[in-house]
Nucleic acid binder design. Sequence first.
DNA 1: TCGCACTTTAACGTATACATTAAATTTCAC
DNA 2: GTGAAATTTAATGTATACGTTAAAGTGCGA
Lengths: 219, 219
Amino acid sequence: MTQSSSQRAITQLRQLIFSGALPAGSDHLESELAERLNMSRTPVREAALMLESQGLLEMRPRKGVRILPVSAGDMREIYEVLTELECLSAERAARHSVKESDLAALARSIEDMDVALRAGDLEQWAQADEGFHSELVRLGGNSRAINIAGMMQDQVRRARLVTLHMRPVPSQSNQDHRGVLEAIRRGDAEAARSIHKNHRDVAQKLILALLEKHRLHLL
Amino acid sequence: MTQSSSQRAITQLRQLIFSGALPAGSDHLESELAERLNMSRTPVREAALMLESQGLLEMRPRKGVRILPVSAGDMREIYEVLTELECLSAERAARHSVKESDLAALARSIEDMDVALRAGDLEQWAQADEGFHSELVRLGGNSRAINIAGMMQDQVRRARLVTLHMRPVPSQSNQDHRGVLEAIRRGDAEAARSIHKNHRDVAQKLILALLEKHRLHLL
DNA sequence: TCGCACTTTAACGTATACATTAAATTTCAC
DNA sequence: GTGAAATTTAATGTATACGTTAAAGTGCGA
């Protein structure tokens, strides 16, 4: 239960970054962060190294830890990788995950999105959408894909802080989700992949257009 | 020029792992590794954390650092991810990399493979093959994909220590490589992806069959 | 001999100390 | 006043010290 300081540092730094308390582009000395988290520099350094390897920050000698901004170009890269891994997962899920119980979480996320949209609650929708996508990857059963997609999803979440309220309401997006779910249910790997690919491509174009139009760097 | 001890530790530990000097499945105390590398535990720990995040080893409290074996199941996961990222890269390369100079390295790798095969030098062939695949990903221009594919390639290299001399001579593999190169050259993204996908799927099936047949865990 | 409580060991996780050196500041000649 | 050299500062990277605690070892009664 009691977790190590390093682990706490990772968790807390992530929270600080995702909440915007450590804004993109800002610099922070290791000693400042250590004081802030009530621990010595050692676990803070270890945590920073991990987060650096995950692309959330950059350690620059003598300049402190810089929280990395996410540019439109970065988001393009991230969406490209994420799309491939999710499509792989959709295909794999369709190929072997036949048990209906495995699909409950997916179905639930779809319902949650419907509910959230009817209530006009975008935050709720975003959370359910993230749930759908991460569950999809989980069903694919490839642990490397799961880890990598998780990292990419972290960045998508940061971008979503900005894009969520700029984009049109994603009212037809759930049709795709249902299509993917049905394809997996009937074991149609080709369809699962192609429907999801199309789903991601549409979303990607939309979000990237928004970001480039507004020349945004993001939290 | 003078690099940090942490960096050296990463480089040297990688060499020790890839050379088999630290065999898969073996355990090593942080203090042993520190002595071996002539440095204190601190940079060794930092290096081990990085290598752990890359899937090369595992840190187990009080049991030391364990060099992770790569099972057939692991290789399946690794090939799946690598295939997706390489296909993405082939497609992207075809879409934007038109300059002939960009393709020189690819063409060179293909020639090197031909030469190596004629000479019956499998090691040489493997090196050129790795060069082709990594250059392909580089041409895709997605820095995240490049990093991730690099990590996956690290594991493929370890597996190849075992599989290289068990597999049939890859005499027709270069046809695929040429096909991909030509597709990129003429900007045919669909073909680049599908030819490469087929290339990878064939190789993957072959290697996985070998591994499963011999119930191998690998260096 | 076996099993269990107790003691000892030692590996890790973290804190702290310290050497190095990039950056900032000051000094000083002109 | 300006620019370069010298000095000081301070943040990092690494070494070391130390407390905690899982695991190994020991002793002893049955």
